[in-house]
């Protein structure tokens, strides 16, 4: 009797031991995975910095490209990216904020309308960015722009071609979900108490939103805007054929001008430039600029968002 029970115990223990060895191995693998990811992040950053830092200077940032893009700086690409994201933000932020207000304040959670809007927003968030490019081409340029030309200019080509405004609006559509999600999250952190206080004082719903909810969501709106700008500055696929160009000798002056952009610049320089090796430092430096830009914007947004979440708890 005693013997068998011992055997059982031993076997049991052995079984557990084996299992736990595997478990320890798998836990080790999970740590390894984290290390790998962080290694990748650090190496991308490190290689971009080491490859581009020496070329990076105020002059590089403020000069036009020279000698068929083999020399000079990236000034027009920076300005182009800035203009595009600003116009984009002007379109995406109001839309996003209003939609977020609807979802957080007006829509009943269980209503089909709210569910459909939510699904639409999620769809916008997962549709490949190249599809937005196609949409921009087919809708903004091919439909809106062409018809504007017919109505406003008697068919003369002005709006029905790739340009700053169409690229910006295309990008606005792509970044809309970013704004909506950030703002809605911020609105939902405003305590119910505050809304009730306002309503109990006889404020209407809209007064409550305007005077209590929106002022409390300012940081969320800011986060959403920053994240959207960061995303918009980095995306290239939607502007490939809606307005970005390889080279411009001047800055865009009108909404229907084309523009240079940092991301597009990197793409063209690294894949289609006449002399890839000679321009390598410029490419690295441009990539570094774009990376630092999106990176710092994201970091700011993370900090603000962290504060909002802290406040919510």
């Amino acid at each position: 009797m005693l013997k068998t029970s011992n055997i059982f115990q031993l076997q049991g223990r052995k079984g557990i031991l084996n299992r736990s060895t595997i478990d320890i191995l798998v836990e080790g693998l999970t740590i390894l995975a984290v290390v790998v990811i962080i290694f990748i992040i650090v190496s991308i950053l490190g290689i971009m910095i080491s490859g581009g830092w020496s070329r990076l200077s105020l002059k590089f940032l403020s000069e036009y490209p020279k000698d068929g893009m083999t020399k000079g700086g990236i000034f027009p690409a920076i300005i182009g990216t800035a203009l595009m994201t600003i116009i984009m933000a002007f379109a995406a932020v109001p839309f996003g904020v209003i939609t977020a207000i609807y979802l957080a304040e007006y829509a009943s959670e269980r209503s089909i309308i709210a569910k459909t809007i939510r699904f639409a927003v999620k769809t916008l968030a997962v549709v490949p960015s190249i599809i937005f490019g196609l949409f921009g081409l087919g809708f903004f340029i091919g439909f809106v722009g062409k018809n504007m030309d017919v109505i406003l200019n008697g068919g003369e080509l002005k709006w029905g071609q790739p340009s700053l405004i169409w690229a910006s609006l295309t990008m606005a559509l792509l970044t809309l979900p970013v704004v909506i999600v950030s703002v809605e999250e911020a609105i939902r952190t405003i305590p119910r108490d505050m809304r009730e206080a306002s309503l109990a004082l006889g404020a209407t719903k809209w007064q409550t939103i305007r005077k209590v909810v929106l002022p409390g969501s300012v940081s969320g709106i800011l986060t959403g805007t920053i994240l959207a700008v960061s995303r918009g500055a980095g995306e290239v696929a939607p502007i490939l054929f809606t307005g970005a160009v390889y080279f411009m000798s001047d800055l865009p002056h009108a909404l229907n001008d084309q523009f240079m952009s940092l991301g597009y610049h990197i793409y063209i320089m690294s894949t289609q430039s006449a002399n890839v090796d000679e321009t390598l430092p410029i490419q690295f430096a441009t990539t570094l600029v774009l990376l630092l830009l999106t990176f710092s914007l994201n970091a700011i947004a993370v900090v603000i968002r962290y504060r909002i979440r802290k406040r919510a708890n």
């Binding site: 305590p191 108490d193 505050m194 009730e196 206080a197 306002s198 209590v212 002022p215």
Partner: peptide, 8 residues
């Protein structure tokens, strides 16, 4: 209300 809720 139970919990004082002045606006910020």
């Amino acid at each position: 209300f139970q919990k004082s809720n002045p606006f910020a």
